[in-house]
């Protein structure tokens, strides 16, 4: 394999209903950072139907070039249609690195493309580095339920591919004055392979708030105990303009919905402030929140592991602290 043919850092810019997903912008931010080491371009692959107008957004956030694949076959994500389109773009443009969001789409598409290309793929990365000398990608990911971290490389194959957990990489500030190149790419589709038919695509409004977007998270665990307890947390979150999230224990107990779960099997979050209330801090939970800018933990057990990552640790009964804090903040904010 001649590596010299493979260059630039590519991002699969996931969109849904024509809306660029936050993770795509996060990946462009990361690609920008890596490109400072390699001196390569940051290229976004934007696939969909009537999405060309979104290319500008990708450039504002740091793409030097956008490969637009606009086709009726790509209206809604279906594995084979997208695999054909992205595979053909990859074989034409030959990226050195290609990153996808670790979403239900990215985690479905990337392995299919990896197998078609015969290259490696590292799943759910939380950290990406590049070697100064050989420009090889070092992909770090949690394994064994977050108990162990592994750094993976793909030394003999190109492109080097990874999926990256949403909410982990910081976006760049958008810059309206940035200029970039937009190229159209027309794949040839083999419709005989379109065996799976999409009957319907249902959006469930399950009161969905994306906790990974929240600046302030008020998160509760076993110590909160019940629905009524979480209502008090909601009161605190509302005063601060934040959202309520939860540990796995409370989701398993049916008290909180899964989309509010922080941790290895839930979401990765990095808010400005993370309140960990009555959360002991199992390693699987820490894996999802320890990148938060400021962690404030309240727990009755002074030996709770959550205190090992907290910026401010309070050993006290949260049922006393939360109402008092909520009242106090109402006054503070009125001032």
């Amino acid at each position: 394999m001649d590596f010299s043919e493979y260059k630039d850092i590519y991002v699969f810019a996931e969109q849904r209903d024509g809306k660029i997903q936050s993770v795509a912008l996060e990946l462009i931010g990361k690609a920008r950072e890596l490109s400072k080491v390699t001196g390569e371009k940051v290229v976004a692959i934007l696939a969909g139907c009537n999405v060309a107008s979104q290319a500008g957004t990708l450039i504002e956030y740091g793409a030097d070039k956008v490969v637009v694949i606009d086709d009726k076959n790509l209206e809604t994500y279906v594995t084979e249609q997208y695999t054909q389109a992205v595979y053909q773009a990859v074989t034409k443009f030959k990226p050195s690195i290609l990153m996808y969001g670790a979403t239900t789409i990215g985690r479905d598409l990337a392995p299919r493309i990896a197998a078609r290309l015969g290259t490696g793929l590292t799943a759910d990365c939380t950290k990406l580095d590049i070697t100064e000398d050989t420009h090889e990608l070092q992909m770090t990911r949690p394994a064994f339920g977050g108990n162990l971290m592994a750094t993976i490389m793909c030394p003999n194959h190109r492109p080097q591919m990874s999926t990256v957990r949403p909410g982990v990489m910081p976006k760049s500030e958008p810059d309206k004055s940035r200029k970039g190149e937009v190229v159209e790419f027309k794949p040839t589709f083999d419709q005989s392979k379109f065996i799976v038919k999409l009957v319907k695509n249902v959006k469930e409004k399950k009161n969905t708030v994306d906790i990974s977007e929240a600046k302030i998270l008020v998160s509760g665990g076993r110590g909160v105990g019940c629905k009524e307890g979480f209502e008090k947390l909601q009161g605190l979150a509302t005063v601060l303009g934040g959202e309520v999230s939860s540990s796995r224990a409370m989701v398993d107990a049916g008290v909180m919905p899964h989309d509010r779960q922080v941790g290895q099997t839930g979401k990765t979050v990095r808010p400005s402030v993370y309140f960990a209330l009555g959360i002991s801090g199992a390693i699987q939970h820490l894996a999802g929140m320890e990148e938060s800018d400021c962690i404030i933990a309240v727990n009755k057990d002074k030996f709770a592991p959550i205190f090992s990552v907290a910026d401010l640790g309070i050993v006290c009964d949260l049922n006393k602290v939360v109402p008092a804090l909520t009242e106090r903040l109402k006054k503070e904010i009125k001032k």
Binding site: G120, T151, I152, D311, G313, V315, D317, A324
Partner: peptide
């Protein structure tokens, strides 16, 4: 094609101070 370059347990960040206090002080 992928090789494990290294594996390690996570370095947890330096914890801040832990205070055993009553609710008023906690606030």
């Amino acid at each position: 094609p992928t090789k494990v370059f290294k594996s390690f347990t996570k370095e947890l960040k330096q914890p801040g101070q832990i205070h055993e206090v009553d609710a008023e002080e906690a606030v």
